[in-house]
Design a binder for these strands. Structure first.
Lengths: 223, 223
DNA sequence: AAAACACTTACAGATGATGAAAGAAACCCG
DNA sequence: CGGGTTTCTTTCATCATCTGTAAGTGTTTT
């Protein structure tokens, strides 16, 4: 059973939405205020977030933005504000759907199901700039082709993506690959880094692994 | 540059849509009549299909249905018929978006871009009931987990999916796996089938491979 | 019961990923 | 420039996994 989180501060509307969703056999979690919603949502990790933007403030957009930044959890925006600007803004932020109230239950449910369907199997995909990485199999998607990375290369790329823009020390990288920082074989790490670099270049990724002498490595945009 | 196919029989509307899309830096292909559109679209294999349903006939829906059945090419339905029923029907058939005309160019483009973004890396995914299969790497997605199938098992599952509901003879399966039907090693095929069955059961797929004695095999829904 | 067909299991060769080792290249600092 | 340190590359043996062979076990049909 799919789990949906409803973010809405108006109790009446919230109840109604929940009822509709429950009737359609979804497991519903209600989140009553925008404050701290991001953390709760990330912890809850529902299959979809139904986000109601009724206040003029930007906090709703902010939630949408940070959710889409963090991981790939579909966000369905529902609003009473019929403003083209708002719609464009939400969509640009990565919202998966934007509907204005009032809205018939059937339409809501149909669109919701559509999105859920489209997200099947996406849960473990890490998003990079111009590519996707499957956290479990280390399948790399780029420009309509896909390649399977060897486990070690996959783990390295994964850690680079989850700690973006940070400089990662050799210890941290060893930890990510072998699960322990003890008995660090710097050479083994070095070899695996080289291999990852080579495959990244081979598939035409826009990123490369930059060396920060004496400190570690980090992912940077190529040239 | 993303390639978009516009299916629309009214020359005026078609021109206008094309102009909007070209201005937004898409490569546009115009398809002027519904007859034979499926084949042309499959051959063209654009990044997205913009499908205009202006006639009351069902042919537009038919195109949508068969496109979604065949592979996963996003379909964006644009229509002047503001009927809830039509919308629900299109969405149920797998349409990725349904907008009613008139519609501002910004909205159209924003939603279009959203869908394209969401489809990145999806091009090679074959859709099964409850799972997805990557045609290139044979990564199998099911219930938020992913597994890499060995090449032979992947090829088998692929051919079962592309020729759904058909009974496949051993010759055809051999052809799919080894590229030749000569020197068919029935036993080798048998072993690979057994292995595929085992992995399918292990990952909990709802389908299984049914045997049709004396004829071949086919994919069926489990019990 | 026998023959034909379908299935399973165990094993050995091939393929590809991995880390060890050794040496080359780049960098830093006087 | 030159020694020392750090980073990088290449080659090779080992290991795991995928694959087809072979032999034997089930199952259906006549």
């Amino acid at each position: 059973m799919k789990r949906i989180a409803v973010v809405e501060d108006d109790a009446l509307v919230r109840e109604e939405l929940s009822a509709i969703l429950r009737r359609a056999d979804y497991e519903v979690y209600e989140i009553c205020e925008f404050k701290g919603a991001e953390e709760r949502l990330l912890a809850l990790s529902p299959d979809l977030v139904l986000l109601d933007l009724n206040l003029p403030g930007a906090s709703g957009f902010e939630i949408c933005r940070s959710l889409k930044q963090a991981g790939s959890m579909p966000v369905f925006v529902l609003t009473s504000r019929d403003q083209m600007q708002d719609e464009l803004r939400a969509l640009k932020l990565g919202a998966d759907e934007y509907l204005t109230k009032p809205c018939r239950a059937e339409r809501l449910l149909a669109r919701l199901e559509n999105i859920l369907k489209r997200y099947e199997g996406r849960r473990n995909l890490l998003e990079g700039e111009g590519f996707l990485l499957d956290r479990q199999t280390y399948t790399l998607y780029i420009d309509d082709t896909s390649v399977i990375l060897p486990k070690n290369q996959g783990k390295l790329l994964e850690v680079f993506l989850t700690r973006r823009d940070q400089i990662l020390t050799k210890e941290e990288l060893c930890l990510a690959v072998w699960g322990t920082a003890e008995f660090i074989d710097e050479n083994a790490l070095q070899v695996n880094l080289t291999r990852l670099k080579k495959t990244m270049a081979a598939v035409g990724m826009r990123q490369r692994i930059g060396t920060v002498r004496g400190e570690g490595y980090r992912l940077v945009i190529s040239k």
